[in-house]
Every structure is written in C-alpha cells, then in structure tokens.
Computed example of a mutant assay.
Amino acid sequence: MTLTVCVYFRVYFSGLVGLLLILTAEARVGNSSESHLCTESKECLLYDLVCKNDDYEVRHYDSVKWVSTDEECYFMDKATYIAFRRLFKYITGSNKAGVNIDMTAPVTVKIEEKKKMWASSVFTISFLLPSDYQMTPPQPTDEKVYFTETPDMKVYVRSYGGWMMSLASSVNSMLLKRQLDNVQATYNKDYHYAVGYDSPMKILNRHNEVWYMVEGEPVCPTSS
C-alpha cells in the first residue's frame, strides 16, 4: 500500500513538474494582443519592463527558443536578406515534419562588434518559435538552420522607426552605447542585437530596436 502511494505521488509530481515546464516555456511567447509592438503576427515575445527613461529602457526576458541561421557578409542588409529566405523556407514546410509554422515577432540579428572597419562579420538571424513549438520544434532539413536559446536576461533597449537597415542600426547602436557609457552602465560589448517587428509590406509606423545585454545591475536614471 505504501509503495503504491509513493509511486502514485511520484507519477503525479512528475506530471505536475512537466506541466509547469510547458507553461513556463510558453509563458513569454504569448498573444500579440498583449504587446503594442506586434501588429502583424499571432504571437509575440513578451517581456517585463524593469525601468525606462527618455533614452532607453531595461527589459527582462525569460529564456526562449529560436530557429536560427548564420550568414557571413560585410553588411547586415545582404546577410539578413539571404538568411531570412532560408528561415522562411523552414517555417513554410522545409522541415522534417513538413508543417507550416506561424511567423512570430520579433526577428533578431545578432551582430558582432567589429574590431576592423572593413572586416566581414558573421550575422546570426533568428525567428522566434511559436509557443506550440517551444518544446519540440520540427527538425530542419537545411543543415545551415539550427536552434538557439536565449537565456533569462535583462537588456538595454533603444527604439527607432523606419527600416532596419545597416546604417540606421549602426547609428542607433552607437547612440545607445554612448548613453550607457555616460551613466557608467555595464553591458556585453562583444555583440548586440538588431531587432525588427514588422514585415516588408508594412510602410508606416514601423518599429525597430537595438539590444545590449545587461551585465550586473541595470542602470536606468530618470534622465541622462
């Protein structure tokens, strides 16, 4: 009798833990109605606002999974064009399950901080996996496509409108770095993210961001 009860509770507890893990994985990939940033996709990457001032904000993101690919180029624009098409094929059936996967927002581009002016860089472009595929996404058929997972993290965020082109992204990353350095904030200086929320078909009210990962305690004075 005692053994039966122990087995029952072990199975029950294991199932409960599994359910909690699934809920946790889906918790921060949610309905786009919960975010003003996502206007075209069903699901969006959700976050908690830590603090905000006139120059930037600090956000907290839970760990989530992405489908990613790398492209080495001199300019982000060309790398993004090539990589976007590769990832789009994955979500439109070029995967081992042959399933179509809903597009989400945002799309991120991980950019190395260049040490030399005219050196090429490896850009990592990522699509956020929808909540239904956060745990078990279908395997890619293209060997250049793989899965990544961003950690539980805080990021410094600067927002801007228009199109996420190389020049605009570079200018805004430079401005954000200057603002962070002015307040002696510590952040990862090896790379940053260019982040886009809109499809090419959207013309007005576009939204883009630059992210730097916080190191240590975030600094967010009311004015800088």
Rank of each mutant, 00 (worst) to 15 (best):
D77W: 05
T80R: 06
I82M: 02
I82V: 01
A105N: 01
L87H: 08
D77V: 04
T108L: 07
Y81L: 00
G93Q: 15
T80H: 02
D102R: 11
K78T: 01
A97V: 02
F75W: 14
R86D: 10
M76R: 03
D77M: 05
V99S: 01
P106T: 05
L87Y: 10
R85A: 11
V109Y: 02
F88H: 15
Y81T: 01
F75A: 15
R85G: 07
A105Y: 05
I91C: 12
A83Q: 11
A97W: 06
M76N: 07
R86Y: 13
V109D: 09
A79T: 05
R85T: 08
F75N: 15
A79G: 13
M76P: 07
F84M: 14
Y90E: 05
Y74G: 12
V99H: 08
K78A: 13
T92F: 00
V99L: 07
A79Y: 03
Y90A: 06
Y81I: 00
S94Q: 15
M103G: 06
I101G: 10
Y90T: 06
Y81C: 00
F75G: 14
K78D: 13
T92M: 02
T92S: 13
G93S: 14
T104V: 00
T92V: 02
M103E: 05
F75S: 15
I82P: 02
I101Y: 07
A105E: 05
I101Q: 12
T80F: 08
G98R: 00
K89A: 14
Y90L: 02
L87E: 12
T108I: 01
F84Q: 12
K96P: 04
K96S: 13
P106M: 03
V107I: 10
G98N: 01
T108P: 04
Y90M: 02
D77Y: 03
R85L: 04
G98L: 00
K78W: 09
T80P: 02
I82F: 07
I101F: 10
G93F: 09
V109G: 05
K78F: 10
V107P: 04
T108E: 00
K89H: 10
G98A: 01
A83T: 06
A97R: 11
G93I: 15
K96Y: 11
R85F: 09
P106Y: 07
T104I: 00
G98E: 04
A83I: 03
V109C: 08
F75L: 14
M76D: 08
S94A: 09
Y74H: 05
F84V: 01
Y74W: 06
Y74V: 06
A79H: 08
F88E: 13
I82D: 07
Y74A: 05
V109S: 10
Y81F: 01
P106L: 01
F84I: 01
M76S: 11
F75Q: 14
L87W: 06
I101E: 09
